[in-house]
Nucleic acid binder design. Structure first.
Length: 265
DNA sequence: AAAGATCTCAACCGCAACGGC
DNA sequence: TGCCGTTGCGGTTGAGATCTT
């Protein structure tokens, strides 16, 4: 079911001889080029990509060298089909992070951002599009959208990485998500729901505490009310925190234009 | 068997973020 | 503070493989 011919390296592209204006090679890498690059990285380590072509004796641009290393030559890169657990993790992480392929790949050992992106674009996205189409055909009157909120990149990145490092069980079950559910576009209001878990038992106290802190409303220095997101106080106004009956989800209500300004900024 | 259509994925491109000066 | 070089990322492309007719 999930092994839709993602086998890699079964085809070897013929080397092309396209060159940049400066005589740099483009296109598929040869085995010789791979060897040179590998030796160079082993000797000097990763980084300083602008020096790599010179050090390795390659007529390639630094970008090409970096990409080849990260996506193909780096040790421990996993080849072959995505497992069911990997696909499940991708789906959950994508729900949480959106198209942050490098972040998603960082949580899937042996997989590169390019792998994840390609897999998503070729296998998952077409399926979800099809499902969306089918469900909209079935319920044409319903107008509910789900939007991944994108706060300041750095804040969210740090927050999620820290969270996942400290609470691996969260991502293992992957039931946490920050989503906007809106069926009320006319007056520009929405609900933001932070679904912690479909099963309370999978999130331990430490995990719950973490997410509680993440959305703590706090007193700002100037007396203005705000809330914490990614460890940074963000000026805000009225913030309604509602614990649902099931005790798992918390809803925050405020005007959408405020949200966009504060979180995307 | 051949031709055309579709799929896969390595590689490229453009841009934003970052750091040093 | 602004400029410039570097790095890293996501979107897109296109060559080759595979499937379909």
């Amino acid at each position: 079911m999930y092994n839709m011919s993602t086998e890699k390296s079964t085809k070897e592209m013929k080397p092309v001889t396209t060159t940049h204006g400066l005589g740099l090679r483009k296109g598929a890498w040869t085995a010789h080029e791979d060897t040179l690059l590998k030796k160079c990285i082993e000797k000097y380590g990763e980084g300083k990509w602008n020096l790599v072509p010179l050090r390795a004796g390659l007529s390639r641009c630094r970008k090409s060298c970096r990409l080849r290393w990260l996506n193909y030559l780096r040790p421990n890169i996993k080849r072959g089909n995505f497992g069911e657990d990997e696909v499940d993790l991708i789906l959950r992480l994508h729900k949480l992070l959106g198209n942050r392929w490098s972040l998603i790949a960082g949580r899937i050992p042996g997989r590169t951002a390019n792998d994840v992106k390609n897999y998503w674009n070729t296998n998952i996205q077409p399926r979800s599009k099809q499902q969306k189409k089918e469900s909209s055909d079935a319920k044409p009157m319903q107008n509910i959208t789900t939007t991944v909120i994108k706060p300041k990149t750095l804040a969210l990145t740090n927050t999620l990485n820290q969270c996942m490092d400290e609470n691996p069980q969260i991502m293992a079950h992957g039931e946490c998500s920050l989503i906007r559910t809106s069926n009320d576009d006319d007056n520009n209001n929405c609900d933001i729901s932070f679904g912690l878990s479909s099963s309370p038992s999978i999130l331990d106290d430490k995990g719950k505490e973490y997410f509680d802190d993440l959305f703590d409303d706090i007193e700002m220095e100037d007396g203005e009310y705000g809330w914490l997101f990614g460890g940074s106080p963000v000026a805000g106004q009225e913030l309604n925190v509602v614990e649902q009956e099931d005790g798992q989800n918390q809803l925050f209500e405020f005007p959408m234009d405020e949200v966009a300004w504060k979180l995307i900024d």
